[in-house]
Design a protein around this nucleic acid. Structure first.
Length: 341
DNA sequence: AATAGCGTCAACCGCCTAGAG
DNA sequence: CCTCTAGGCGGTTGACGCTAT
């Protein structure tokens, strides 16, 4: 059959032998890969250039990190996947030493199932309805969720212009460091305090709809009082990408303790004390932010149409955020977004 | 012990895109 | 412009190992 890229050549396929690996490593370390199509010839391999490239990138590169993924890496994958979808190469860029193939395999074999067991659609990160779950036979029992806090919290949002703006007024007038308290009808109130003021600002001049602003409030002081944001429900069913709100990048994380089976990564915000050993995570966060911006712009058509209706709804938040837990300033970002809109 | 079922992972396939001619 | 080629990427496949029956 032969590869399209090297149909004329007789190429070996299948697993690489140690000898082949050695030849490829030797060739690339001494001469670089240059044009991949010429590598097999120069390296004395009966492989196609594409195959050599893949082998090098996915397996032989010295900077590759082998071994299982850490919880932090797993969380990064989930976060970025929520924003970018199946763009494995982009996701892998957030994980030094990992390849797109590795990330993809890990997603398909582990994370996907984990999300499904939590009742989340791995494609959309949206909550799968009980009906869907039943029909898909996913996570029917909550065997993997021994704690009730893993249940999605049912919060009804309304909103939109007037009410959100009312909230805005309320929040702005009552405190410079608004704290959102979410009440769950079925469960005791989940109170999250805002430990860190939002710090970054993003604005797309071309598309104000794709903008979020969450500027560090110079008057911010440690939260000592609470404002309660009461939001009632919208019946609309359209969902909205979280990235529009800058929720991910603006948050330390989207995951409340106990909502995930592992420790969520700590992404440091500007306002926090810088911790040298966590610089890498900071960089990851910055990259994440960047990607969110790109994605927000990519999605601006959708967003704009949603915004035009002046009634974007929060079903996505209701399902996803609430299922994972949400920190108050996440919501604050969302609120900020609404205000700025 | 045999084997079916399942999970993992390396590798391949085929499409898309950018750049050169 | 158009065509060709190489590289990049996501989806899929198949080999292999482990576990349950």
């Amino acid at each position: 059959m032969g590869h399209r890229c090297c149909g004329k050549q007789k190429v070996k396929r299948g697993l690489w032998s140690p000898e082949e690996d050695e030849k490829l490593i030797k060739h690339i370390t001494t001469r670089g890969h240059g044009s991949w199509s010429s590598v097999p010839k120069h390296a004395g391999l009966q492989r196609c250039g594409k195959s050599c490239r893949l082998r090098w990138i996915n397996y032989l590169r010295p900077e590759l990190k082998r071994g299982s993924f850490t919880p932090e890496e797993e969380q990064i994958i989930i976060d970025v996947h929520r924003i970018l979808g199946n763009r494995w190469a982009q996701i892998a860029k957030h994980l030094p030493g990992r390849t797109d193939n590795e990330v993809k395999n890990f997603w398909n074999s582990c994370i996907k199932k984990k999300l499904m067991s939590q009742g989340l659609d791995p494609k959309t990160h949206n909550l799968i309805s009980s009906h869907q779950r039943a029909s898909n036979k996913i996570g029917g029992s909550s065997r993997s969720q021994p704690h009730d806090q893993q249940k999605p919290i049912s919060v009804n949002f309304t909103t939109v212009n007037s009410q959100m703006k009312n909230c805005s007024a309320e929040l702005n007038s009552s405190s410079s460091s608004p704290i959102v308290t979410l009440y769950n009808a079925q469960q005791p109130p989940m109170v999250e305090t805002m430990a860190t003021p939002p710090t970054h600002q993003y604005h797309d001049d071309q598309n104000p709809n794709a903008a979020w602003t969450s500027v560090k409030d110079p008057t911010f002081h440690e939260p000592s009082t609470e404002s309660t944001l009461n939001i009632s429900s919208s019946s609309s069913s359209s969902s909205m990408n979280l990235s529009v709100f800058g929720l991910l990048g603006n948050s330390n994380c989207l995951y409340a303790a106990g909502a995930q089976p592992f420790e969520a990564p700590r992404i440091i915000l500007e306002g926090e004390q810088s911790k040298g050993s966590e610089e890498v995570l900071q960089q990851e966060k910055e990259k994440l932010l960047e990607m969110e911006m790109i994605k927000a712009i990519d999605d601006q058509d959708m967003d704009a149409s949603l915004m035009e209706s002046s009634s974007f709804d929060f079903s996505f938040l209701e399902s996803t955020l609430m299922s994972t837990g949400v920190t108050s300033h996440d919501l604050n970002s969302m609120v900020d977004f609404a205000w700025n809109y």
